[in-house]
């Protein structure tokens, strides 16, 4: 049982899995910036296609990708529906209802924004589907995150699913005492959740007590220049990927800001 938790990482042996996690982190950042630089619907659709191509290459199964998209699609639809209601600029006007004016360019602007949001939301999965939590934290530390902060992050990722199961189990334990979580008004409901969350927090803090002893007994903080069993190292393929990514960002940026090309 995982308490309904989904660890996004899917082990496989693909080009993207083998890529240095630092490169993948940088890739997510670069592609996100690119999504902001692009302002044409066509180029944004192209970027979205590129992201899905990468996800496909990472062997993200259809069901995983669909899960990832579930929340994004709702979000995108809302943007498309709500945007024209608040943006009366441009012609032709398609409909007018009192103060609300629906124009054709406004609809396209909504769609463009929705696609950009789609890019920004899905680009994360290139990293999350292909990188284990351990590699992720290691990469962040290598990129300059302090080791103790990295360790804190690693601990929190480690305990996330554990606490997910814990919450479900405590919910059951309290339901067996007649607790009905979805009953009553705001005050009653708040108190109901307290009955679930207090045991959860107390159990979690007990875990923290044990954990801090374990850290001490394993000489946490004994020396600043700690070493690692497995060091990250950039291979030629990583440099190639990095170069391609930088080019992907720089070319459109030059086109837009120096040559003033609409892209």
């Amino acid at each position: 049982m995982t308490g309904g938790f989904v660890d996004l990482f899917t082990p496989a042996d693909t080009f993207l899995h083998r890529l240095d996690p630092r490169v993948k982190i940088i890739a997510v950042l670069l592609l996100s910036v690119l999504a902001f630089i692009l302002s044409n619907l066509d180029s944004l659709l192209l970027l979205l296609g590129f992201i899905f191509l990468l996800l496909f290459l990472a062997r993200a199964t259809l069901s995983r990708t669909l899960f990832a998209l579930k929340f994004v699609v709702r979000f995108m639809v809302l943007i498309v529906v709500l945007w024209p209601l608040f943006d009366p600029s441009g012609t032709p006007v398609l409909a007018e209802l009192g103060p609300v004016k629906i124009t054709e360019p406004a609809i396209w602007r909504g769609v463009t924004s929705a696609v950009r949001v789609g890019c920004l939301a899905t680009v994360w999965y290139i990293l999350m589907f292909t990188t284990s939590q351990r590699d992720l934290v290691r990469a962040l530390v290598k990129l300059g995150l302090r080791f103790d902060y990295g360790l804190t992050l690693a601990i929190s990722l480690r305990f996330l699913p554990t606490f997910g199961v814990l919450i479900e189990s405590i919910k059951d334990a309290q339901r067996a005492r007649g607790l009905e979580l979805s009953k009553g008004g705001l005050v009653r409901r708040s108190k109901n959740y307290v009955a679930v969350l207090v045991p959860t927090i107390v159990s979690a803090l007990r875990t923290a007590d044990t954990l801090s002893l374990a850290l001490q007994s394993r000489a946490y903080g004994a020396r600043a220049d700690r070493t690692y069993l497995r060091e990250l190292s950039m291979r030629p393929a990583d440099y190639v990927a990095l170069t391609v990514l930088v080019a992907l960002l720089v070319l459109p940026a030059v086109a837009k800001f120096l040559l003033h090309v609409q892209i």
Partner: peptide, 23 residues
């Protein structure tokens, strides 16, 4: 010796972060 934050803080902050995400 490393000037790291205390093990107690690492453990409690790690656990609270996980709890926030899990809840």
């Amino acid at each position: 010796p490393a000037k790291f934050v205390s093990p107690k803080v690492v453990a409690v902050y790690g656990v609270l972060t996980a709890l926030t995400a899990a809840v």
